[in-house]
C-alpha cells in the first residue's frame, strides 16, 4: 500500500494548499480586492479640494479604512463556495481539529488577499502624499493588522454563510468590531508622524493579533456549525 498516514501538520498543509490552489484558479480573488483598495483610496483626493498637507495627514486613515473594506469584501468568498458545494460539510464532519483547519484557511486566504494589500500600500502612500517617516510604520501596522481584520471578517462571513445576500449585513456586523484595529493601525502612523515612539502601539496591534488568533477560530467554528444544518 502506498497509503501514508498524515499528522496534523501535513493535513493542515493540504488545507492551505487547497486554499492557494483555489486562489490561483480564480485570479479575480486576488486582483479584485487589490483594485478596490487602489480605486477607493484614490477617490478621496478627487472628492474635494484638499490641501496637499491635509491630504498627507489623513493618508494613514484613508489607507487603513480602504484596507479594512477591501479585506472585508475579499473575505466574503471565504466559505461561500465550500458552503454551496457541500465541502464545508466534509470539513465539519472530518475527524480533524477544526480550530486549526479554520485558522489555516483564514491565513491562507490572507496570504492571497491581505498580503498584496500590504505590498501595494506604499504606492497609495505616494499618491496620497504620505510623509516619508510614515511608510515603515504603515507597513508594520498593516502586516500586523490585516490578519486580525481577516480573522474578524471571517467570523462575520461564517455567521452569514447560509444567507443568500449577505454583503451589507456582513459590513454591519464586521465594521464595528474592526474599529480597534483601525484605531491602533492608523494610530501607529499618526504616532510616528508626530515624532513619538511607536513601539507601544505596535505592541497593542500585536496583542490584538494574538487575541484574534486564539479566539476567532472558536467563534468561526461555532458559527459554521450553526449555519451548516
Amino acid at each position: 500500500m502506498s497509503r501514508v498516514a498524515l499528522g496534523l501538520g501535513a493535513s493542515l498543509r493540504a488545507t492551505l494548499r487547497r486554499e492557494l490552489q483555489l486562489a490561483i484558479s480564480s485570479p479575480g480573488k486576488i486582483v479584485n480586492p487589490l483594485m478596490f483598495f487602489v480605486i477607493a483610496s484614490s477617490l478621496f483626493p478627487l472628492s474635494g479640494r484638499l490641501d496637499i498637507d491635509v491630504l498627507g495627514s489623513i493618508a494613514p486613515g484613508i489607507i487603513w479604512v480602504t484596507a479594512l473594506l477591501a479585506v472585508m469584501l475579499s473575505m466574503e468568498s471565504l466559505f461561500r463556495s465550500d458552503y454551496d458545494d457541500g465541502s464545508l460539510e466534509q470539513l465539519l464532519l472530518s475527524p480533524q481539529p477544526l480550530y486549526f483547519h479554520v485558522l489555516i484557511k483564514v491565513l491562507g486566504h490572507w496570504l492571497v488577499t491581505g498580503l498584496p494589500l500590504v505590498v501595494v500600500a506604499p504606492l497609495l502612500g505616494l499618491l496620497l502624499n504620505l510623509p516619508a517617516q510614515g511608510y515603515v510604520p504603515l507597513l508594520i501596522g498593516l502586516v500586523l493588522g490585516t490578519p486580525t481584520l481577516s480573522l474578524i471578517a471571517a467570523i462575520g462571513t461564517a455567521l452569514t454563510v447560509a444567507l443568500a445576500r449577505s454583503g451589507v449585513l456582513l459590513a454591519v456586523l464586521v465594521l464595528p468590531l474592526s474599529i480597534p484595529v483601525l484605531v491602533f493601525g492608523a494610530g501607529v502612523v499618526d504616532t510616528a508622524l508626530n515624532g513619538l515612539p511607536v513601539a507601544g502601539v505596535i505592541a497593542l496591534l500585536a496583542a490584538l493579533l494574538v487575541l484574534a488568533l486564539s479566539f476567532a477560530p472558536l467563534a468561526i467554528v461555532a458559527a459554521l456549525r450553526i449555519n451548516v444544518q
Binding site: I155, L159, F215, A219, A222, A223, I226, N227
Partner: peptide
C-alpha cells in the same frame, strides 16, 4: 439558527 448566531456575535 437566528438565536445561536446572535449569541455567538454577542459573545464576540
Amino acid at each position: 439558527a437566528a438565536s445561536k448566531a446572535a449569541s455567538v456575535l454577542t459573545l464576540v
